[in-house]
Design a protein around this nucleic acid. Structure first.
Length: 592
DNA sequence: GAGTTTGAAACT
DNA sequence: CAGTTTCAAACTC
């Protein structure tokens, strides 16, 4: 019991010997001094610490894992106020003031039939004695310690984790808190997940909501609106009325009843079932960040997506959780999936290497006019070799990106449990990167690479400390020149990619409009099996054909146009071996 | 404050 | 493990 451990949790404000005594259930606590559990370490946002705690006590408590019977602490300070824990559902219903998030003072239970010896009882579940509660026939007290202990044993027998905190902290806390600026914390996730059906997870009935955390993949809730990016949820936390309880409830109610609906378009959220993100991204991902991402994307996608029925033969709203989560029929395929071919990459790299060499050579020639050839040769060689590595790295990066891109077509299927995407990465695995991201990553990794492979170069480049370099200013300039040329080329290439992507997007959009025949219009609560919200975005729809919904090509340049439309498009300006068929596919592909 | 709703816990 | 019942908190009026 951690919480049980709880049992071992040192009571705040109470002695330091607690850990020891608390574990010994035989010690009869002094009158009505319940221990307070501390859930702050578990990410429970609501776990506001009410009482100061002993610095050394916390570690002790956390170090304890053995599930033992929770025993209210002994104390030699009867005057200490009993304060119940602020756990995330931390225990049944925490004492949190929804208005301001501040913890209220102890809350008394009102149990009538459980004798306060079942988890129904907040006090019992918290591992504390009832104190000043309004319960009836309470046995959760010193006088009934025997019964209490027995009840604890029974409870633990049934569920060894019964007294453990339900909210696990999230490794992505920092990120979350940042993203949720202004909102309640969203750290951690419910270990078991909630099972809400009607509350939309936006009421305190929901343990996740109550704990101020987002629902996670652990949840089996229906029609969940407690996910990042949920407008309903945001409505609860943001806005001028953010602190108005009435507003909050109104928003929640509206959200639940669909009055607001996702994005206010009058359409019900994706499904009556389960979280929509699973429909698109595969369900079983255990990576919180991915999950959040998916949730976020869900929020975006649902606005732009088409009726789910048109994308899947299975009516989403009737798909059981497991089914929905297990058989994701939606896959996201990058707009560039067919554009970038391995050969393109090779060509790109070749070109970059060539221009790099040329740059180096040109620069060397210039210098040769005034400096010793031998030295220059070495430098050129160095430059070239460095550049080669650079190209090599770029190629690697790009290929990785493309690999992701290509694999994305089956992304949803791949996002399984083992697809624990890079922890904390802002670019979870499986999510195709936009050209812009790709470029940024390349730049970033180039920098990193260069820093590792050639610190001097990096220094010279970024800090203008060339005078300190063994190779002098000349080398630095040569590298700079090479870099400039290469980056320019690379930029051009990426711009072309962007253009291609936009062309394809445009085509897809047209196709969607054509095939959906106006389905993208806002609709009221349509067929239950239905549809997701449609925002203003066009989403490719092709009857059953594998045209999955995909995010809009966000960072794509605004200049789709002419250049893009040119049949001579190639990734590079240099003559290409592409099979230019006018379509977006530049090549006949065989390399994949 | 009474009655209803909700979802976790308990039970079958 | 799924379905049902019990329970107490959350919520509504």
């Amino acid at each position: 019991m951690e919480q049980g451990e709880g049992g071992d949790f040192p009571p705040k404000k109470v002695q330091s010997d607690t850990a020891g005594t608390a574990a010994v259930t035989s010690d009869i606590p002094l009158k009505k001094l319940a221990r307070q559990l501390d859930f702050t370490a578990f990410g429970g946002a609501s776990a506001a610490v009410v009482l100061p705690e002993h610095p050394q006590s916390q570690p002790q408590a956390q170090a304890q894992h053995p599930v033992t019977m929770p025993v209210p602490p002994q104390t030699t300070h009867p005057s200490v106020r009993v304060v119940k824990p602020e756990s995330p559902r931390s225990r049944p219903r925490p004492n949190i003031d929804v208005k301001d998030g501040t913890p209220k003072k102890q809350k008394q239970c009102n149990c009538k039939h459980s004798r306060c010896l079942k988890l129904y009882c907040e006090c019992f579940a918290s591992g504390i004695y009832c104190d000043g509660c309004n319960c009836v026939n309470c046995h959760n007290n010193v006088e009934n310690e025997a019964a209490r202990r027995e009840a604890v044993e029974v409870t633990l027998e049934r569920n060894p984790n019964a007294f453990r905190p339900k909210i696990a902290s999230s490794p992505h806390g920092a990120r979350d808190s940042r993203e949720e600026s202004g909102e309640a914390l969203v750290l951690g996730k419910h270990n078991k997940g909630c099972h809400c059906k009607k509350s939309g997870c936006l009421k305190k009935y929901c343990e996740c909501f109550q704990a101020n955390i987002l629902c996670s993949e652990n949840c089996k809730c229906m029609d969940c609106k407690n996910f990042e990016g949920s407008e309903e949820r945001q409505a609860l936390f943001h806005g001028d009325h953010a602190n108005s309880m009435a507003y909050i409830q109104q928003a929640a109610n509206a959200a639940i009843t669909g009055a607001i609906g996702s994005s206010g378009f009058g359409s019900p959220p994706v499904s009556k079932k389960r979280k929509g993100q699973e429909l698109f991204y595969g369900p079983t991902s255990k990576d919180p960040s991915l999950h959040r991402l998916a949730q976020f994307q869900q929020a975006s996608l649902t606005k732009a997506s088409v009726t789910t029925s048109s994308l899947s033969s299975t009516p989403v709203s009737r798909v059981p959780n497991s089914a929905a989560s297990g058989t994701s029929k939606f896959t996201y395929r990058s707009l560039l999936a067919d554009i970038i071919q391995p050969q393109d990459l090779k060509e790109l790299c070749s070109v970059l290497v060539v221009v790099s060499e040329e740059a180096a050579r040109t620069f060397a020639d210039k210098r040769n006019l005034v400096e010793k050839p031998a030295e220059e040769q070495v430098e050129t060689s160095r430059a070239s070799s460095t550049q080669d590595r650079l190209q090599s790295q770029k190629e690697s990066d790009i290929e990785k990106a493309v690999a992701d891109d290509c694999s994305s077509r089956n992304q949803a299927d791949k996002l399984g449990p083992d697809d624990s995407s890079s922890d904390g990465g802002d670019v979870p695995k499986g999510r195709p990167m936009s050209p812009g991201t790709l470029a940024l990553m390349c730049d970033e990794q180039d920098t990193m690479f260069m820093a590792a492979a050639s610190p001097n170069v990096l220094m010279g480049h970024s800090c203008n400390t060339s005078s300190q370099l063994p190779y002098g200013q000349g080398i630095t300039e040569a590298y700079a020149e090479q870099e400039r040329i290469i980056l320019t080329k690379f930029r051009d290439c990426l711009n072309r990619l962007i253009t291609f992507g936009e062309i394809k997007e445009t085509k897809c959009s047209s196709l969607a409009r054509t095939e959906s025949g106006g389905q993208n219009e806002p609709f009221s609560n349509g067929p239950a099996n239905a549809r997701t919200d449609t925002g203003n975005q066009q989403v490719p729809v092709s009857n059953g054909v594998s045209k999955p919904p995909f995010p809009p090509a966000t960072k794509m340049s605004q200049t789709v146009t002419a250049a893009a439309a040119s049949p001579n498009n190639t990734l590079l300006s240099k003559p290409s071996t592409h099979t230019e068929n006018g379509d977006i596919n530049l090549k006949t592909e065989k390399e994949l």
